[in-house]
Write a protein that binds this DNA or RNA. Structure first.
Length: 573
RNA sequence: ACCCCGGUAGCUCAGUUGGACAGAGCAGCGGAUUUCUACUCCGCCGGUCGCAGGUUCGAAUCCUGCCCGGGGUGCCA
């Protein structure tokens, strides 16, 4: 099923081609888009202005040629040329109502399955072992998970992979610290908290005490050589972290198909580097093995360090190869912060030289900052993720208790969980991923205005309307009455609902959950206005059923849309 | 020094890839409820789109230069 924009755009393109058969129209955008303002109609096509030069004709004249067409699209009730050559389209109420009913009948709410079974590996979240998840991890996790949900819904075969940082130089310091600084009781009580403490202390000590540093190096070498005792300790770290992270993921409603750490690819590294050398891709420089990417303006990419160790570029290349062998993806998508842009550009460039043809995409997002600047463990201003979630739920609970004092306590808690976590997620996802986030508690946990609870509230009101309808009109038969669009607010709402497929499709194509969030907020606003100003349960039979049906479609769109960005919709608030 | 982002209302941000007089939320001010959940709705106030040029029918959007902020730039990830 085509989206409404696609449908109208295809029509426009066909009309322009028919009117100007000799012109090359491939270069010019002929899209039909929603109008900037209601008074210009419902949809508009701006192609005439763009074509004026190529066709050497006045834009208004070009627009007229199309407007005068004898076979208008069945949706179009009126066409008008405005300004320099805008072609403004007004759609027929009857057609809109029919289309809305088609959306209502469709389990996918009109969203095309553009993924068409293609496979995408989605790499996101990726916390480090032995460190607690903090605000710095939230963006990759939330944006990644939203893209995960969007792609699945769009018909892609998605393999989400949590590429955990479970290998690297920090383990020397950690094991050294574990052997000498561990407080057993503290470790039993909260293993990751204790590991984090050990790590910080061990690192501080290594900066002042060369012997300590040297011992840590030896611990790292032992681990890398596969020493059983070292591996045993390492596995304890892994398990503790995994248990701790799992709690967070569960609270966030995030799950992965795979959770493979960097260590999973260790065995592949020597052979990969050997191949890079043999194929003349990598060369020796200052004792290390590097791939020179100066030509592409990407500097050099180190694939083996002077000490013989491998680094993350190597691991990422091996990971790509492994994923290709196992899953034959069409695309591999990484969701990380902006600081890794150069890294991924280098890795992708080296992959190309290795003959890897799979689509490689780095979706990066801006940094999370606090009022004092960046969050960092050194400054001691990091906000632990579990604390952030607790706080979100706590604030939401206060709100629910005030608004619904009659609600049973356990339900209040459950609703508060959905609202609090939803608010937190939405605060992040409603923003363009690429802009940075200045973290404030107030913004992260906002419960009014452009926030998840506003959308959830709109949903809950509809659920209530539907209950009341069944209660008051037990014999009412919604299907027996067609959707009719009369009131302006009603028509406006219908137009918004019909944009849902375009919003989902665009959000997925552009890897921007914010596009969908933005759409949903707009929809909720239009609905709230409708709700406030148009009576429905008090309306006459027929009109009443039509409006309750429109409410029903709105509820489904809100629910589906919010689900696609990982936000729950309780039916009572 | 070079590279990548960003700079839009008092604050936080959109702006469908070049379209109509620049849009939301919050904050501020003023209204609306014997009614389907007021966590709502309606209205008002508020902008030299960092600055200066350029491209064209048309620029917040593209190009050049400059200013400010963030990030990155060979052995951390």
């Amino acid at each position: 099923m085509k989206t409404l924009e696609q449908d109208l755009s295809a029509w426009a393109k066909e009309r322009f081609s028919a009117a100007f058969p000799d012109a090359n129209l491939d270069e010019v955008p002929l899209d039909v888009v929603p109008t900037a303002e209601e008074r210009f109609g419902d949809y508009q096509c701006n192609a005439a202005m763009g074509l004026a030069r190529a066709l050497k004709r006045a834009p208004r004249q070009i627009a007229e040629t199309v407007a005068a067409t004898q076979d208008p699209h069945p949706a179009i009730a009126g066409m008008e040329i405005a300004g320099p050559g805008f072609l403004n389209l007004t759609l027929s109420n009857k057609w809109l109502a029919g289309r809305l009913q088609a959306l209502e009948e469709d389990s996918r709410l009109g969203v095309p399955a553009e993924g068409d079974g293609r496979t995408v590996v989605l790499d996101y979240s990726g916390p480090n072992v032995a460190k607690q998840m903090h605000v710095g991890h939230i963006r990759s996790t939330l944006i990644g998970n939203a893209l995960d949900r969007l792609h699945r819904f769009m018909g892609f075969r998605v393999l989400s992979d949590n590429h955990i940082g479970d290998w690297g130089t920090q383990f020397g310091l950690l094991i050294q610290g574990y052997r000498h600084l561990l407080d057993d009781a503290a470790f039993d009580a909260d293993p990751v908290e204790e590991l984090e403490r050990i790590y910080v202390e061990s690192q501080q000590r290594s900066e002042q005490d060369p012997d300590w540093l040297e011992q840590a190096r030896r611990e790292l070498v032992k681990l890398q050589k596969g020493d059983e005792e070292s591996l045993r300790i390492w596995r304890r770290f892994m398990e503790a972290s995994r248990t701790e992270n799992e709690k967070i993921y569960q609270r966030l409603g995030v799950s992965f198909d795979l959770q493979r750490g960097e260590s999973f690819y260790n065995d592949r590294l020597p052979a990969l580097v050997e191949r890079l050398v043999r194929q003349g891709i990598a060369e020796e420089s200052e004792g290390a093995l590097v791939v020179n990417l100066e030509e592409e303006g990407l500097g050099v990419c180190i694939v083996r360090k002077r000490d013989g160790g491998f680094n993350y570029a190597t691991t990422d290349l091996a990971t790509i190869e492994s994923r290709i062998e196992e899953f034959q993806p069409d695309e591999i998508v990484y969701v990380t912060d902006e600081r890794q842009q150069l890294h991924f550009r280098q890795v992708f460039a080296v992959a190309r030289r290795l003959g890897i043809r799979v689509g490689l995409v780095h979706i990066w997002f801006g940094p999370m900052r606090s009022a004092e600047g960046t969050f960092s463990t050194r400054k001691g201003n990091v906000i632990k993720l579990h604390r952030l979630l607790d706080e979100a739920e706590r604030r939401a609970l206060a709100m629910v208790q005030e608004a619904s004092p009659q609600m049973p306590a356990d339900q209040q808690k459950e609703v508060a969980r959905a609202l609090g976590i939803g608010a937190l997620k939405y605060a992040d996802l409603c923003q363009n991923p690429q802009s940075g986030v200045n973290f404030t508690w107030q913004k992260a946990l906002a419960l009014d205005g452009n926030s998840a609870p506003y959308l959830q509230y709109a949903y809950a009101r509809i659920a209530s309307v539907q209950d009341k309808y069944r209660e008051r009109f037990p014999d009412g038969d919604l299907a027996a009455h067609p959707i009719v669009l009369g009131e302006p607010a009603e028509r406006r709402l219908a137009l918004r609902l019909l944009r849902f497929p375009d919003a989902v499709s665009r959000a997925c194509r552009q890897n921007k959950p914010s596009i969908l969030a933005d759409y949903l907020f707009d929809l909720a606003q239009v609905y709230s206005s409708f709700y406030q100003n148009v009576p429905f349960l008090q309306a006459e039979e027929g009109c009443r059923e039509s409006r309750v049906r429109i409410c029903g479609v709105t509820a489904r769109v809100l629910r589906q849309g919010l689900d696609l960005i990982g936000i729950e919709t309780p039916s009572r608030i």
